[in-house]
């Protein structure tokens, strides 16, 4: 049964503030910033949760903590169910490689066998309509084609928990309708979706609940429309 639990989770990320620095100054060069503070959260099977918050609110960090990419400094993150994470529109896409190679690498990353990868790619070619363009390097793609390829990568999903950071905005209206149907079919009652995006329209399409983060703290968690209303009032 898919489930996510966070108990008193605090996390700070590290970053190099500038291109300067030196071997002996690097310890001070690596800065630290608290991204999430004392987060308690319980997400059950079938929940589709929109992450709301301004830039730097902690949305991406929260997704990375749930996916296991980051380990919390304090507190516990417990997940039950296979996780598929998809962070950023271009993350994981290697522009020098062809669309086909990118899709193959994605399948290998998920430990799928060759037959499964070939079947999935066939499905993705049909769905995205990229056809022979998949043979070309991704660096030659238009923005719309890149968006379609990125969505194609998302189609490899074979997990109970789906974590998406800015990845479902896929090109024109016609394609967007297709992606909407695909994601809805995917999210049966046993799956969890946590989706971070700045597009309220997209969030409304896919999510029934919302979690509002501000400065690394949970401001509200509940039904999508209620929390969105609170968030919009706060922004004013």
């Amino acid at each position: 049964m898919a489930q996510i639990q966070l108990k008193n989770v605090t996390f700070s990320y590290k970053y190099f503030p500038s291109i300067g620095g030196g071997l002996f100054k690097s310890s001070s060069g690596l800065k630290s910033k608290v991204a999430l503070r004392h987060i308690d959260l319980n997400i059950e099977k079938g929940d589709t949760v929109a992450l709301l918050g301004t830039n730097g609110a902690g949305k991406s960090t929260l997704l990375k903590l749930i996916s296991g990419v980051f380990k919390p400094e304090q507190g516990v993150v417990k997940t039950n169910g296979k996780i598929y994470s998809f962070f950023g529109r271009n993350v994981g896409v290697m522009p020098q490689l062809s669309g086909y190679d990118n899709l193959k690498v994605r399948g290998l990353l998920l430990n799928l066998n060759d037959k499964e990868i070939a079947e999935k790619i066939e499905e993705i070619v049909e769905f995205t309509g990229l056809g022979e363009d998949l043979e070309r390097p991704v660096s030659t793609y238009s923005q719309g084609m890149r968006a379609r390829l990125t969505f194609g990568m998302l189609m490899f999903v074979n997990a109970e928990i789906l974590l998406v950071d800015e990845g479902l905005a896929a090109g024109d209206k016609f394609f967007l309708a297709k992606t909407h149907k695909f994601v809805n079919d995917l999210l049966d009652q046993s799956k969890i979706l946590i989706f971070a995006s700045h597009s309220n329209e997209l969030l409304r399409r896919f999510c029934k609940k919302a979690l509002w983060l501000n400065n690394g703290e949970v401001m509200a968690f509940g039904s999508f429309e209620t929390v969105l209303k609170q968030y919009n009032q706060f922004k004013k």
């Binding site: 990375k64 996916s67 296991g68 996780i83 962070f87 994981g92 990353l109």
Partner: peptide, 8 residues
């Protein structure tokens, strides 16, 4: 980095 930031 692209891969390591995606999954563990």
């Amino acid at each position: 980095s692209n891969f390591m930031q995606q999954m563990r």
